[in-house]
């Protein structure tokens, strides 16, 4: 297959990796984008979901927010952010919002869109995780005289952590894969290699870009699985 030969040639050519707009630079951009979006989503979603889970209330809200979130196309969200350009509120006071910065304007839009996209799996998993702590554990803890805060930090959180980590792991891989959408609005990341190859009918290059994205996704998945194992209490490990 000539297309696969082209892809291999593109991957083995050092010129396609190095320099400005090379794959290493784009890979770095996309990793930065992924990590920042995940952190943003964690800061926004995790405390709220864990707290609601601890209270045992607002489950309807948590699940439905997640459902609606899934219905909003990331591409549409991204397109709206790019067109509205709401990041320029400071009038160019902060570099990186009005001007390029490490991610560029389309990059900031992608970052926010990805963070919102990552909220549903994080919120649903964290909420369910705390809710699924067995009632007798809760009762024993209260019987031992633990306060609400102690119950949460010493019982609920450690027991919920594996499932919470599962949600974060899912979010991480989905953010990474979806970050390629930035290319549709001329944003940063490896999506550019793919769309560029596609628009210029260099299918080999497109396949090479897709392969790199998939390989990194698998590496991230493995790392996240390892992390999930580390935070799981010994007796819960599979």
């Amino acid at each position: 297959m000539t297309v696969l030969d082209d892809a291999l040639a593109f991957l083995t050519d050092p010129a396609s990796w190095t320099g400005s707009g090379g794959m290493l630079q784009l890979l770095g951009q996309q990793l930065l984008l992924t990590v920042l979006a995940l952190l943003l989503a964690l800061v926004l979603g995790l405390p709220l979901a864990l707290w609601l889970g601890h209270l045992g209330r607002g489950g309807f809200l948590a699940i439905n927010v997640a459902g609606v979130g899934r219905a909003v196309p990331t591409f549409a969200l991204l397109a709206l952010f790019v067109a509205a350009d709401p990041w320029d509120v400071t009038g160019g006071l902060f570099p990186g919002t009005a001007t390029a910065g490490p991610l560029g304007r389309a990059g900031v839009s992608t970052l926010v869109a990805l963070a919102l996209f990552a909220l549903p799996p994080i919120i649903t998993n964290a909420y369910t995780a705390v809710r699924e702590v067995p009632a007798e554990v809760r009762e024993s803890a209260t019987g031992l005289g633990m306060s609400g805060a102690q119950l949460f930090w010493r019982c609920e959180l450690p027991l919920a952590l594996p499932l919470v980590a599962g949600g974060v792991r899912l979010a991480l891989v989905q953010i990474w894969a979806t970050a390629t959408i930035a290319a549709l609005v001329a944003g940063p990341g490896l999506g550019r290699v793919i769309t560029d190859g596609f628009y210029r009918t260099l299918y080999g290059q497109g396949i090479a870009g897709a392969a790199v994205v998939a390989v990194v996704a698998l590496v991230l998945e493995l790392l996240a699985a390892l992390g999930q194992r580390l935070v799981s209490p010994a007796h819960l490990r599979a």
Partner: peptide
Amino acid sequence: ATGLYTIPSVALLPLLVP
């Protein structure tokens, strides 16, 4: 199925075009 989910849609569609 899990592997498939790691392939972004932006990549999968161009891959099918040939």
